[in-house]
Amino acid sequence: MSLKGYKDLPEGGVIPERGNSVLYKTGEWRSMKPVYYPEGCVHCLLCWAFCPEPAIKVENGRMLGIDYDHCKGCGICARECPRKEKALQMVRE
């Protein structure tokens, strides 16, 4: 990748962008990954509330699954899920 020359960069080291870190895929860090089983899910959204990334996809108040591009595999979601193994399970990558 060729990086921009100094005259083409914004002044003062500012980043005039909104949340462009989504382009950076932290999913590669993972050694364990959460697997989602929608049939066991009660959409309590605790997994979403506790995910540090955020890497739990939610729409209209419903859990939609995992954003594997960014999920680091911490396991908080699976551990805190009230449905435990029925909705979220950690497995080796």
Binding site: Y24, K25, T26
Partner: peptide, 13 residues
């Protein structure tokens, strides 16, 4: 906060 930040996995912050 957008994902793609580089805090450790499981960080509380």
């Amino acid at each position: 906060l957008a994902p793609g930040h580089r805090l450790c996995a499981g960080c509380g912050a």
